[in-house]
């Protein structure tokens, strides 16, 4: 999503993937856990940010991922 109101602070990301798991579970009709269905993608990075966070095009900024981030990596702008 271009111009997302969700602010990403990758250095705070612990790689728990709860954002991605929650995104698919709460936003799919079938209520499944799926990284393919998730609109947020967390992948390994390097150096002081150990993870990289990106949103897929179909993200609607519903905020489920923000609700499930306990590390301050995802917040509202």
């Amino acid at each position: 999503m271009v111009g997302s109101p969700i602010k990403v602070k990758a250095v705070n990301c612990s790689g728990c993937l709860r954002c991605a798991l929650a995104c698919s579970f709460y936003n799919t009709k079938e209520r499944v856990f799926s990284f393919a269905e998730s609109q947020i993608v967390v992948r390994p990075d390097e150096n002081d940010a150990w993870f990289n966070i990106e949103f897929r095009e179909d993200c609607i900024a519903c905020g489920i991922c923000v609700d499930h981030c306990d590390f301050g990596a995802l917040t509202w702008e």
Binding site: V11, S14, G15, C16, L17, L21, D48, W50, D70, F71
Partner: peptide, 17 residues
Amino acid sequence: KIGDISCMGCSIGCKHL
């Protein structure tokens, strides 16, 4: 310590960067 690291699905994050 630079940051917290978690296992999959865990909000605790007892591992370290």
